[in-house]
C-alpha cells in the first residue's frame, strides 16, 4: 500500500533578526526529516519543548513552507495543492480549540462553514446534526456561542468540524494537553473511534509519553529538529533504542509503588540552541556514550529491528549480537 503521508528531507530554517542586519542568524527548527504514514495509522511524535515537533506539524498541514524537502499527501506535494484540496486531505487539531471558534458564530454555523466552503450547502443542516451526534454532542448545542460550552465540548466540536471535509490525515498538536484526565480519556476514545470508522491517519504530537504510547502504532522521537529514532510503539525505549530516547523515557515520572527506585538514565546539561547546533550528532554534547565520530559526522539511519530506525553511530544493524548500546541499559 502506498503511504498516505510521505515526508522526505524536510527542513525548516528560520532567519532571525539579530544585531547584525547583514548576517542573520539561522534557527534550524526541523532538519532533514524523513517519515511515512499509512492510512489509518497513528504516529506519535515526542520530544522536549523546542525540538521542532510543532514546526513539523505546521509544515505538514501547510501553515509553513519548507526550506528544503517535500511533504506529499496521497502522492502529491502539499505545496502544489490548492487550499481546498489540502483541506480535504489534512486537518489540524490544536491545543486550544476554543481559539479556533469565531466567538461571534453560533456552533451550528461554525459546523456548516466547511460545507459551505466546499460547496456542499445542500443538506448541510442534516450533516451538521450528524456531525454533532458523531462526537456525542447534544443537538441543541448548535444554538450556543463558543463561550457557552466547556473545554471538552469545544475539543469535540473542533474534531467534528475538522472531520467535515473528510480529511485522510489529522495532525493533532498537543490536542489533549489542555484537558483534564477524564476529558482526555474521552477524547482519546473519540479519536480511536474516528480512526476505526474512517481509516483516518493521525500524527499525534505530544510531550505526554503515556498518551502517545496509548494512542500510537509507531513513535518518532525528535531532538533538536531531527528524528533520532522512529519505530513501533512497543520497541521504543528498549535495548536497541537511541540513548536520547532512553533518557527521555527514564525522565518521565511514573507512579508505581512496587517498583524500587532504580538508577535511571537521566541527562546532564541543557539542550543546545537550535541556532548553533553542535556539529555531528545533535545529541553528542549530552550523550553519555559519545565517541569521536559523533562529534564530526551526522549519524546515518540504522535499522536496528523490525521497522525501528535509530540515528546513532553506535547502533548496530538488526541481527548482530551485543550491540554496544546495551551498555547504557544498566544490565
Amino acid at each position: 500500500m502506498p503511504p498516505l503521508l510521505d515526508v522526505t528531507g524536510l527542513s525548516k530554517v528560520f532567519r532571525l533578526r539579530g544585531p547584525n542586519p547583514f548576517h542573520r542568524r539561522r534557527l534550524t527548527a526541523v532538519a532533514a526529516v524523513d517519515l511515512v504514514l499509512a492510512p489509518g495509522e497513528t504516529l506519535g511524535v515526542v520530544g522536549e519543548s523546542g525540538c521542532g515537533k510543532s514546526t513539523l506539524g505546521r509544515l505538514i498541514v501547510g501553515d509553513l513552507a519548507p526550506s528544503a524537502g517535500t511533504v506529499r499527501l496521497a502522492r502529491r506535494p502539499v505545496s502544489a495543492m490548492t487550499r481546498k484540496e489540502r483541506a480535504r486531505l489534512v486537518q489540524p487539531i490544536v491545543q486550544d480549540p476554543r481559539a479556533t471558534l469565531d466567538p461571534r458564530w453560533r456552533i451550528g454555523a461554525l459546523l456548516a462553514e466547511p460545507l459551505v466552503i466546499h460547496g456542499q450547502r445542500n443538506g448541510s443542516a442534516d450533516r451538521v446534526r450528524e456531525a454533532l451526534a458523531s462526537v456525542r454532542l447534544p443537538p441543541d448545542i448548535a444554538d450556543r456561542l463558543p463561550h457557552q460550552i466547556s473545554g471538552g465540548q469545544a475539543q469535540r466540536l473542533a474534531i467534528a468540524r475538522a472531520l467535515l471535509p473528510e480529511p485522510r490525515l489529522l495532525v493533532c498538536d498537543e490536542a489533549l494537553s489542555a484537558l483534564d484526565a477524564a476529558v482526555q480519556a474521552d477524547i482519546v476514545h473519540l479519536l480511536r473511534r474516528v480512526q476505526a470508522e474512517r481509516d483516518t491517519a493521525m500524527l499525534f504530537i505530544s510531550h505526554d509519553l503515556d498518551l502517545v504510547r496509548h494512542l500510537s502504532h509507531r513513535v518518532a522521537v525528535m531532538y533538536l529538529g531531527r528524528i533520532v529514532e522512529i519505530g513501533p510503539v512497543d520497541r521504543i525505549g528498549t535495548r536497541q533504542s537511541h540513548p536520547y530516547t532512553r533518557a527521555l523515557i527514564g525522565a518521565a515520572p511514573r507512579i508505581d509503588p512496587h517498583r524500587r527506585r532504580t538508577k535511571r538514565a537521566t541527562l546532564e546539561g541543557e539542550t543546545p540552541s537550535p541556532i548553533d547546533p553542535p556539529p555531528g550528532c545533535a545529541f553528542q554534547t549530552r550523550c553519555p556514550l559519545a565517541i569521536d565520530r559523533c562529534r564530526i559526522q551526522v549519524p546515518p539511519p540504522v535499522r536496528v529491528g523490525p521497522g525501528q530506525i535509530v540515528h546513532c553511530h553506535l547502533a548496530e544493524p538488526a541481527g548482530r549480537d551485543h550491540p554496544p548500546l546495551h551498555r547504557l541499559a544498566g544490565d
Partner: peptide, 22 residues
C-alpha cells in the same frame, strides 16, 4: 496568526471569506 482565521484557512476558506465573515 492564530485562532479562528487560521482555522477557516485550514478548512479551505480564502482571504475574502476570512476577512469579511470573520
Amino acid at each position: 496568526e492564530d485562532g479562528y482565521a487560521a482555522a477557516t484557512a485550514h478548512l479551505g476558506g480564502g482571504p475574502w471569506r476570512i476577512s469579511v465573515q470573520h
